[in-house]
Amino acid sequence: MLIDSRLKAVHADSSESNPEQEQLVQQLLTSLGPEGVDDVLDGTCTLIYLFMKWLREAHEAHEKDVVEYVVPTLVTSLKMLPRSVPPEAVPMMAGLAIAAATGLSPTLWRKQYGDWTKAELTPLEATAFLLAEHINRMTDDQDFATRMITEALTQVEEGEREE
């Protein structure tokens, strides 16, 4: 939901940020409490994993390496956001994307470095956003990444109902 909201804001006709939407996101995150925030972090890592899995499969279909073609673009994009992404967070986000590209759980990979720091939260969101935007540009469909995740969630829910 957060990533989809950011994608829609970027593609909106207005170049101004929506303070009402920002306030709603902040209220949501505040209402979650510490356990809920951990769930959001795990969910964001899962999104990164799913986006990188899709990108890996798409690149392998053309005999290309996802790390070679996606990670440098991701790093360059993150470095272009110095107010939101501190330079010291870029290697962590690149490592997270590479872990996901090689089939490793980003959440489990990250655990070896300790808890998330406050300075890494925006870069983590930016990483998920940039990967979703990359997929949307590849498919020439502004809603493809969101639809892909929605369909995956629907399949999981249907599988749970059948059990």
Rank of each mutant, 00 (worst) to 15 (best):
Trp109Arg: 00
Asp115His: 15
Leu104Val: 06
Glu68Cys: 09
Thr117Ile: 14
Pro34Val: 03
Phe144Leu: 07
His11Leu: 14
Ala94Glu: 11
Arg137Leu: 15
Ala61Lys: 02
Met93Gln: 09
Val85Ser: 00
Leu124Asp: 00
Asp140Glu: 13
Ala132Gly: 07
Leu131Gly: 00
Leu2Ile: 03
Val90Thr: 08
Gln21Arg: 10
Ser77Met: 15
Ala145Leu: 00
Arg147Trp: 06
Thr146Ile: 06
Pro72Ser: 10
Ile3Asp: 00
Lys111Thr: 15
Gln112Glu: 09
Ser17Phe: 09
Tyr69Glu: 12
Arg147Pro: 02
Ala132Lys: 04
Ala128Lys: 02
Glu88Ile: 10
Val75Gly: 05
Ala97Gly: 04
Val37Trp: 05
Gly103Tyr: 04
Ala101Gln: 01
Pro87Tyr: 10
Glu88Asp: 15
Val90Gly: 05
Val85Phe: 01
Thr44Asn: 06
Ile98Arg: 01
Trp54Thr: 01
Thr150Ser: 07
Ile48Tyr: 00
Glu160Ser: 14
Leu7Ala: 03
Leu47Ile: 09
Arg161Gly: 11
Gly159Val: 03
Ala9Trp: 06
Ser31Trp: 02
Met52Pro: 02
Val10Cys: 09
Val75Phe: 09
Gln21Gly: 07
Thr73Asp: 15
Leu81Trp: 03
Trp116Glu: 05
Val37Pro: 02
Ser105His: 02
Ser77His: 15
Ile48His: 00
Lys111Ala: 14
Ala100Leu: 06
Ala61His: 00
Glu162Gln: 13
Val85Cys: 05
Ala9Pro: 05
Ala12His: 08
Thr122Tyr: 08
Glu151Pro: 03
Ala58Arg: 04
Leu130Gly: 03
Glu35Asp: 11
Tyr113Gln: 11
Ser17Asn: 12
His11Arg: 15
Ala97Glu: 01
Thr127Glu: 05
Ala119Glu: 14
Gly95Ile: 04
Asp141Phe: 08
Val90Gln: 03
Ser14His: 05
Leu153Ile: 14
Leu50Tyr: 07
Leu108Gly: 12
Glu120Asp: 10
Asn18Gln: 11
Val25Trp: 01
Ile3Pro: 00
Ser77Glu: 13
Glu35His: 06
Ser15Trp: 12
Ala145Phe: 00
Pro91Gln: 04
Ala101Ser: 07
Gln23Tyr: 10
Leu131His: 01
Lys53Tyr: 06
Arg6Asn: 06
Pro87Asn: 14
Asp141Asn: 14
Asp65His: 15
Met148Ile: 03
Val10Ile: 15
Glu133His: 13
Glu125Trp: 13
Gln112Gly: 11
Leu78Arg: 02
Leu130Ile: 08
Ala128Arg: 01
Val67Tyr: 03
Thr73Cys: 14
Leu24His: 12
Gly43Asn: 06
Ala100Lys: 01
Leu28Met: 14
Leu124Ala: 02
Asp38Gly: 13
Thr76Arg: 11
Ser14Phe: 03
Ala94Ile: 10
Asp141Trp: 09
Asp39Val: 12
Thr30Phe: 11
Gly95Cys: 07
Ala100Phe: 05
Asp4Glu: 11
Ala99Cys: 10
Glu57Gly: 08
Gln112Phe: 06
Ala132Gln: 04
Ala89Asp: 08
Glu133Phe: 09
Ala99Asp: 05
Pro19Val: 07
Glu120Asn: 09
